[in-house]
Nucleic acid binder design. Structure first.
Lengths: 340, 340
DNA sequence: CAAGTTCACGAAAACGGTTTCGTGTTAATA
DNA sequence: TATTAACACGAAACCGTTTTCGTGAACTTG
């Protein structure tokens, strides 16, 4: 087993000082031609690579960024992580991924684990538990220590930091408008419990579109489902009662379930009922019929968040506390669950 | 901005030595009651947390594990990462995720980035590029340095290390057998190019099942598709030509495409044709009809890999080079694309 | 009261680098 | 020839911990 070689080893072997080796390997002008070549050759031969940990300790820079997401099985978060990875890697950063599993406690624990020197900054999306608790002290502690933080998608006004979101109001507005323009009269909304910031925004867009078109907002056309453990019966009962001619879902999965329920009731999609979901994921793409969706551009969001974070990390002036919120434009991807 | 507090700060403030502070915070018997209480109180007050990097440098243990996967958007890898995360987190480890993006070069770069002290061990699944190149020197270098490595799913015999896979031959065998038992006579196989180890195994299982049942293996019933950029026409032409009464796909996505193509041709699933895919993912679950699949138990695989790695990392005796290969049993999840 | 213990703490090395600041030798200059 | 500048390198501090070892003071013991 070839153990890792250190500067000390090289220095001993070549009978020079550690400092000389360090400088020689950085090609410092300070060191003479011969010595430099000798050291560099030796280092190459033994495949010397500096120890990241030692460098991190010295520089107080780890070149790691911490990403805390509620889940990684959901397509949207997956694409965001991929976007972060892509940008960060190109910049020489590693990505440490932690899953909060929608739990406030896990989110806190993960933050604390990483906040003690493991990372240069955080990118995160709030867990359901955190949004429910409305408790952001862990975020505050981190930012107060001067650790850069970028929130994406599920964000909060309580914390001053960089943020990147899509215009959820607009996305829902456009989707609803599209349904109205098709001539739909009874547009149901499948949404989540109210503590999710994104759902609130999407609800708002839905309502605004209705109002702008002179349509009435009927509370009985809105179904607020618990986020986890989807109960198909709830959706089924709701849709059977409402008998909508269009459905807007604030996520992908409710949309898929909704479509299936309606099809089972003998409704044809999109002839009898149009459906639009959020999150342009694999399910939407491969559903039958494919699901018209509001694309959240997760990968772009991830890249943007990573860029914002790394810019912040690498800028010396941390006093420049002019935090920015980047708002990405959603895109309505028209597929076969709506009429051309 | 409250900067992180260090032992040195506490020592200065309380007019004791750094060593005393360190010991006091570890509740060492060596330190007197009063001093200990004073120091602990101060530390609590200022929320002292030891710097992970410094500890890593000292212990030569980072409590980080490096995970390199080809992609993170595919359901299977996602679940594996989640399993790894789950186990590793419970053990106090962080997970650094790197994406090789199916590229040999990126895989190598990522390994090198992490191998210089950033992690205690690797968990990885080979990129397509690596399997194609058949070049495993980067893995060899890592293992020769004594860095523990666990390969999962896409593994190679070339490298001596711990591995965890499912029994792909068996999975395909059982799936094919199931189709045969249904009375299917013309079972097509949708597979990938041959350099993927898992596809080779699954092909083998398919063939063995046919042979065992006295059926002929016909090369023209097998379609080998390029892994990326699925060309639906290729599938369409193939299935129109073969007109199979059953299809086995070595992954999820080919199965979904195959099903759609057949449905477009007017075939009813499962009445006219049965379909089984690999990877029991979201697409399979929500397809219409839902797709009978060979579950790869990604989360279990991830947990197992993490356990193997951490056991290896934490065992002192690295001479114990008795590497193990854990073989998980696949499970056939019967859904609506086959006959009850 | 001398010798040996115990107690409570500090000094210093170590982990593996980077970097500042000497310093001895040689070569150029006055 | 004496002075100085340039050159090539080393010593040491530092990043934040842990840990070994040493030591002065107080205390026990014979």
């Amino acid at each position: 087993m070839k153990k890792k070689i250190t500067l000390k080893h090289i220095a001993r072997e070549l009978d020079v000082s550690i400092s000389t080796v360090s400088k020689a390997l950085k090609n410092s002008e300070e060191i003479g031609r011969d010595t430099k070549e000798k050291i560099q050759a030796f280092a190459k031969l033994y495949n010397y690579k500096p120890n990241n940990i030692a460098i991190s300790l010295k520089n107080k820079r780890t070149k790691n960024i911490g990403v805390i997401v509620p889940d990684i099985v959901h397509y949207f978060f997956t694409t965001v992580v991929r976007g972060i990875e892509k940008y960060a890697n190109a910049k020489g950063y590693n990505v440490i991924v932690c899953l909060s599993d929608e739990s406030f406690d896990k989110e806190v624990i993960n933050m604390e684990m990483l906040a003690n020197g493991s990372i240069d900054g955080f990118i995160m999306s709030l867990s359901a538990g955190t949004e429910k608790n409305n408790d952001f002290n862990h975020l505050r502690e981190v930012t107060e220590q001067g650790i850069p933080l970028v929130l994406f998608d599920r964000v909060t006004d309580e914390i001053a930091c960089d943020k990147v979101v899509i215009d959820d109001v607009l996305g829902a507005y456009q989707a609803t408008k599209k349904l109205i323009d098709e001539g739909r009269k009874k547009i149901a909304l499948l949404t989540t419990e109210d503590f999710f910031s994104v759902s609130r925004s999407r609800n708002k867009g839905y309502m605004k579109a209705l109002t702008d078109s002179g349509m009435e907002i009927k509370e009985e056309h809105i179904l607020r489902l618990p986020f986890m453990d989807i109960d198909e019966d709830l959706i089924s009962d709701f849709l059977s009662a409402v008998r909508p001619d269009a459905v807007l879902s604030v996520n992908e999965i409710f949309g898929i379930y909704g479509m299936r329920v309606l099809q089972r009731c003998g409704m044809r999609v999109p002839e009898d009922v149009s459906i639009i979901g959020f999150t342009d994921g694999l399910l939407a793409k491969h559903a039958n019929p494919s699901l018209t969706s509001v694309a959240q551009h997760g990968e772009k969001m991830g890249e943007t968040a990573a860029k914002m974070l790394i810019d912040r990390v690498e800028s010396e002036d941390d006093d420049d506390a002019s935090y920015r919120t980047t708002i990405l434009e959603p895109t309505l991807i028209e597929r076969d669950s709506t009429i051309g």
